[in-house]
C-alpha cells in the first residue's frame, strides 16, 4: 500500500477540480479550491515521509537521528497559510459579487458588468 498517500493526493486534486468545474455556487467553489489545495499538502508530506523516523523536532532525540524531511513540512506550512488567505480573499469577492449581481451562481455571471 505504499502508493496510497499519492493516490489520496491525486483523488483530492481530481475531486476538488470536479467540484470547481461543476460548481453552481461561488462559496462551494471556494471550498472546492481548498480541497484541491489540500491535495498538495498530502503530496508534500508523503514525499518527505520516512518509515520509522520521528518528527524533525530534536528535543529528545540526538541530531542526525532519522527524522522526516523538514523542508517539505516548511513548504506545507507556507502552503496552508497562503491557502487560508486566498480563501478569505475569494470569499470577500463572492460577497461583493452577490451584492452587485444578486446571485452566487457562476453560470448567471456570464456578462461583464462595469
Amino acid at each position: 500500500m505504499s502508493f496510497l498517500p499519492f493516490a489520496v493526493a491525486a483523488w483530492l486534486f481530481a475531486v476538488g477540480l470536479y467540484g470547481i468545474v461543476t460548481s453552481r455556487h461561488l462559496i462551494h467553489l471556494v471550498v472546492c479550491l481548498s480541497v484541491v489545495q489540500s491535495s498538495t499538502y498530502v503530496l508534500l508530506l508523503a514525499i518527505g515521509y520516512r518509515t520509522g523516523a520521528s518528527a524533525p523536532i530534536f528535543v529528545e532525540i540526538p541530531p542526525g537521528a532519522p527524522a522526516v524531511d523538514p523542508v517539505v513540512q516548511a513548504l506545507t506550512l507556507t502552503d496552508v497559510v497562503v491557502a487560508a488567505t486566498v480563501s478569505a480573499l475569494l470569499l470577500a469577492m463572492a460577497v461583493q459579487v452577490h451584492k452587485k449581481a444578486g446571485t452566487f451562481d457562476p453560470d448567471e455571471l456570464d456578462t461583464l458588468q462595469g
Binding site: S2, F6, I47, P63, D69, P70, V71
Partner: peptide
C-alpha cells in the same frame, strides 16, 4: 519518486544532521 517511506532527499537529511 522513491517509494513512500523511503525518502532520500539530500537536502532534508543534511539539514536534520547539521541544523541543530
Amino acid at each position: 519518486l522513491p517509494a513512500f517511506g523511503h525518502y532520500e532527499g539530500v537536502y532534508g537529511i543534511t539539514l536534520n544532521r547539521v541544523a541543530v
